[in-house]
Amino acid sequence: MELLNPEIAAANIGPLFAGLVMTIELTFVVILLSLVFALLVALGGMSRFRPLRWLVKAYIEAIRGTPLLLQLIYIYYVLPEIGIRLNSFVAGVIALTLNYSAYLSEVYRGGIQAISKGQHDAAAALGMTSGLAMRRIILPQAVRIVIPALGNYFIALFKDTALCSVISIQEVVFTAQIIAARNFQYFTLYTIVGIMYFTVSFPAARLVGYLERRMRAGYRRKLR
């Protein structure tokens, strides 16, 4: 058995890097979609309209009660049987967005509920409708509170995109699998893949830590 082989590494770094780019692309598309969708889910879950609340609850429980891997497989392989045929990237984006939005909506909900009643009272007393108060007063404060938690979820998402290899999205793990099937250089290939994930995740985690400290510092004028 040969350990990390520089020639193999050099020969395959190009395709692996292309795979990493796909991983990052997938991550960003899902981040953008789930940031918006999760907020809608969170607001729906707090709606005065009871059927909407039930629908949201059912969706969240269904997602939380089943594995992400199954959700991916389901959307890619089972939906075509009822006539919904999606390409693998779209299927991956939908599955990941649905999955992460369920969790992120709970994060948003927590953030919104953390805002004191006094803020609602003050906004109402100034003649703001509840929608305006939500948009201008409650959400800006809630979003700030949940930024670190969202960041941690997005780092987890970045790594979870690896599951999309089972529906043959050409992200970095899938790319490594294809190459390894030809040359059997598991050690070299998967070590490189691991290093790639880490070089993105680690700085991202540090950034989240920084944002968390910034948040705890409260609202102040920018010094300097």
């Binding site: 006094g118 009272d121 003649g127 409708t129 404060q141």
Partner: peptide, 26 residues
């Protein structure tokens, strides 16, 4: 309606024990 209630509230100022300023605004 909620909108009509808000319109009346806009005409009556209220000051709270805990101030309730909006912390994210200057």
């Amino acid at each position: 309606s909620n909108r009509a209630i808000s319109a009346v509230r806009a005409q009556v100022g209220m000051v709270f024990q805990q101030f309730n300023l909006f912390p994210h605004l200057t």
